[in-house]
Design a protein around this nucleic acid. Structure first.
Lengths: 199, 199
DNA sequence: CACGTTCTTGACGTCGTGTCAAATACTCTT
DNA sequence: AAGAGTATTTGACACGACGTCAAGAACGTG
């Protein structure tokens, strides 16, 4: 066998960076190939298609992101955990300076939908998977908080609600680009869930 | 002047139908031209570009949608109004049978992002405009409800929260396609906002 | 050291967007 | 009523992107 002339993971990282910044549609395989110093054909050989490449790059990212979220949800009072969770959700929207959308939400709405109606099952599952796992993390935090008397309510329902707000924030961010407002919404949500209404 | 051989509004409707079903990316101007019985070049002459055509088609839809929302938010108890609002938000995701995503959320995440980072100012504003106006409608309903003692809290913050949940639902719908779950989240949100916690 | 397997490379086909100039059809003026 | 003007239509063209394929290249293995 002839050995590969590039590092699989490096290409995934480079590709994801581009996909994140310019969108899947706005990124051509030529762009990625140039950036990675790889021939375009080699990418097809190694990954199959543009969408498959994106999906692999996305799953790489999803792993890292989950770890960060888990850490954020693991220390302090329940309120602190939730605030940290929202914080990470909001700030991770941008990696350096310029705001870029949430990859999951972006990808979900941008991908597939080529022919019939929805997006391909593979892609859908990749995104749904991450969302499910994040929901589980939040639910665990809430359940633990319930035992400590920091929260009264249905952990499953509340977790789902929080995750929904999270996804909504990604959309609002793209529509208005107003980060302070996002934080206000997040704080308000935490108040609602923790039963401290008003402000 | 030579008169146009097609009806401007008809084309807008046909185009939006396609954009909604197959996504902006998944719809080619050839598709629309064929469906509308118009030459592709004529579309460019009349609308300028694919994105411009989508934006005009979208604004046409936005007007109709706003009217429907306003009606839903205008009758019954505050709780009934909010439920009706969420209902319309959820069911309007599909027009006939097959579930198609929320056009606003789809468009926001799919459009632009070609070069630098975000989407063009024109497009962003079109979406942000609809979201703002919907938020205003909800806020009005909440303010009225506050006077009637159906709601205590900050109408602006609550409206923003509700709209965020709404946008989140569009994402969740696309990830899981599970409509009953959407309704549960909606009901839970109404409970939270109206201060009837638990279930 | 040859063999085979995999990767690489460049050319090709197809499709989509957007532009342009020539032809066309209508209206308005005289 | 006829011609001039103007906007629309039409088809051809250029360009870029995705994906495929066959031929060449590089490495491990017997």
């Amino acid at each position: 066998m002839r050995p590969r002339e590039f590092d699989h993971d490096d290409v995934l990282r480079i590709a994801f960076e581009q996909f994140w910044r310019k969108g899947v549609r706005g990124t051509s395989l030529s762009d990625i190939a140039r950036d990675a110093g790889v021939q375009r054909g080699s990418l097809y050989n190694a990954f199959g298609s543009k969408e498959a490449l994106f999906l692999q790059a996305y799953e790489r990212y999803a792993g890292d992101y989950l770890v960060a979220l888990q850490k954020a949800l693991g220390a302090g009072s329940l309120r602190k955990r939730l605030i940290a969770f929202f914080d990470l959700t909001i700030t991770n929207f941008r990696s350096g300076t310029p705001p870029r959308g949430c990859p999951t939400t972006r990808g979900l709405m941008e991908l597939g939908a080529a022919e019939g109606e929805g997006l391909d099952e593979d892609a859908r599952q990749a995104f749904a998977n991450l969302i499910s796992r994040i929901t589980a993390l939040v639910q665990d935090a809430l359940s633990a908080g319930a035992k400590r008397g920091e929260f009264s309510g249905n952990p499953a329902a509340a977790a789902l609600h929080i995750i929904t707000v999270t996804r909504g924030l990604a959309v609002i961010e793209r529509a208005f680009g107003d980060e302070p407002q996002l934080r206000k919404i997040a704080a308000h949500t935490v108040d609602l869930v923790l039963d401290k209404r008003g402000r």
